[in-house]
Design a protein around this nucleic acid. Sequence first.
DNA 1: TAAAAATACATGTTATAACATATATTTTTA
DNA 2: TAAAAATATATGTTATAACATGTATTTTTA
Lengths: 150, 150
Amino acid sequence: MEIEKAIKQNVKFSSEYHKIAVNILFTASWIDQGHIQKLKPFGLTPQQFNILRILRGQHPKPATINLLIDRMIDKSSNASRLVDRLEQKGFVNRCVNKDDKRAVNVQISEKGLEVLKSIDENLNSLDSDFKTLSIEEAQQLNFLLDKLRG
Amino acid sequence: MEIEKAIKQNVKFSSEYHKIAVNILFTASWIDQGHIQKLKPFGLTPQQFNILRILRGQHPKPATINLLIDRMIDKSSNASRLVDRLEQKGFVNRCVNKDDKRAVNVQISEKGLEVLKSIDENLNSLDSDFKTLSIEEAQQLNFLLDKLRG
DNA sequence: TAAAAATACATGTTATAACATATATTTTTA
DNA sequence: TAAAAATATATGTTATAACATGTATTTTTA
């Protein structure tokens, strides 16, 4: 649906560039709301899910908080507190790094691996709604987003 | 920059569609952070700015809260409380609707119009960073985002 | 090599998001 | 036309974002 209709805007955007900003922010909010709803039954927020998947990618190697910050999609949050919440739920373990006592080693737990497996199996895909685009269009969209950020 | 590099990901995305989700969420977060920084000197958050611009578009007609909800970019927030904050800052006025006493009429104030004018004049554009894309590419990007949402 | 700077992470505080529920008014229905 | 349902908005509560600051450790520098 055209972004103008989606936000019921009755005037033209001042520029194609302004329209991009609105369109990306609106689309991201739409995607995020979908993820929130899909992940809720598993007791995870999108940000926590993001951290868990980074940790699974590292597994069995641990990750430091700094590595998580580097790889998080949304840098605005607080990796330390996200790990707090995941630890409270038993999805990760945290212990001090022998080589650098300032750093901590964060590792996904068995329970964490299980919840991800369960999500993989029960949720067809978080992003299955995107099949409105062909593979070529999806590639083009990714190319343009990358170029946008310079 | 390629999204894989932006989030220092060392493995391939499972699909071009998953990559789209990450790419859009990351890009939106990047845009939002830019807006937060640019709007801070004017005492506005991006959400408040969004409401003010909708109200300017309506001016001198008032808007109801429902109209604001319809047109907000990020539906997840609470329009009533956003208007509270704008009212506290003197940027909008709120009064009951004569025709429907459940509804309220929200109008942008002189002070609200002035802050938007000041932003227009002092901030070249919130979205001036996007000139990495040609007009044709910008149009293509908007087309693909619209198509993505179906 | 001792002091200064930088780094990695944690934590305190305030504002806002997320969610549920409440209230007043209008519209629908039996 | 009175009761039920729907609508428009407000508000209470808990969790998290946003921002600043603190603490321990490591690295750099004079």
